[in-house]
């Protein structure tokens, strides 16, 4: 029976998506959408509906571990969610007036350009922590966590305004393109706010569930969340996220950055191909 094979392929792809999505903070949509459209021939509407479910699953599934281990910075996450949720609403409102193909192309190229600074920082373990001052101090944007080798890391966030701006852009892209835009979230926290890599990816992972939930209502009402498709995705992604979260806690920052760079390159290429009409 065709449906059984379909469900099994989708289930195992979702485990894979959950493992990588939870480590790099992107949420697994990068894997789920091409598997559904290219490999299984499912319509892009159903693929995006499944991607929303995958993002929420990766986020909540892995965040339970990251939050308890204090890797996720709750205050940084909640503060930046102000920008991602308002950006998502604004993006959804103007979606009708925007050429989404052209936007995906621009976004894909921006991600490719972002590879250069990522590659330059490839070996970085813990960034030199800036002084806590100004808005960061008022918002209490600092934190600490313990590395697997026992080092206790204390860090401060800098440039919250730049981070907030990056998150408005990330939120708008989510609303416009139906993606989690975790790549943009990680880049904003990594470059603008100078957070340690693990804190950036786990805080992005924490936030993408809220961004995806914000647009879930619209996709659900349209009937794009197909139960037969999302069932194996939801179960597989939760298993994958549980595995990925355990791996990240033990991993070193440079390793996570290398995996992030690879996934970033794939996401950029996928975005560009989709915009050119190759993938979708």
């Amino acid at each position: 029976m065709i449906v059984i094979e379909f469900l099994v392929i989708l289930f195992f792809s979702s485990i894979f998506a959950g493992v990588f999505g939870s480590i790099v903070g992107l949420g697994g949509g990068v894997v789920i959408v091409p598997v559904l459209t290219l490999l299984l021939g499912v319509d892009i509407h159903f693929a995006i509906g499944a991607s929303i479910v995958a993002i929420i699953g990766t986020s909540s599934g892995a965040a339970s571990t990251y939050v308890k281990d204090k890797l996720t910075n709750l205050r940084v996450g909640m503060f930046l969610e102000l920008a991602t949720t308002s950006g998502a609403i604004a993006g959804a409102a103007i979606a009708a007036y925007v050429n989404s193909g052209a936007l995906a192309l621009v976004f894909g190229i921006i991600l490719l350009i972002a590879l250069a600074p990522t590659a330059m920082k490839l070996g970085e373990d813990i960034p030199k922590s800036p002084e806590l001052k100004g808005l960061s101090k008022r918002l209490n944007l600092k934190g600490s966590y313990t590395e697997p080798d026992g080092r206790h890391i204390e860090y401060n966030a800098t440039r919250p305004g730049a981070g907030l701006f990056g998150m408005v852009v990330a939120g708008m892209l989510s609303g416009l393109l139906g993606i989690g835009s975790g790549a943009f979230k990680v880049l904003s926290m990594d470059y603008a706010m100078k957070l340690p890599m693990k804190v950036s990816t786990t805080t992005s992972n924490f936030m993408i569930g809220v961004t995806a939930a914000a647009s879930a209502g619209i996709y659900y009402a349209r009937g794009d969340v197909n139960p037969l498709i999302v069932a194996p995705v939801a179960v597989g992604i939760l298993i994958g996220a549980a595995i990925g979260a355990r791996l990240l806690v033990k991993a070193r920052n440079p390793t996570i950055r290398k995996i992030f760079a690879i996934v970033l390159a794939l996401a950029a290429i996928e975005m560009i191909l989709t915009s050119l009409g190759v993938a979708a």
Binding site: L82, T85, A213, A214, S215, G217, I218, A221
Partner: peptide, 11 residues
Amino acid sequence: ALLLFSMLVTP
């Protein structure tokens, strides 16, 4: 508030 507006009202 933004999240609930986006999920429940915008559709």
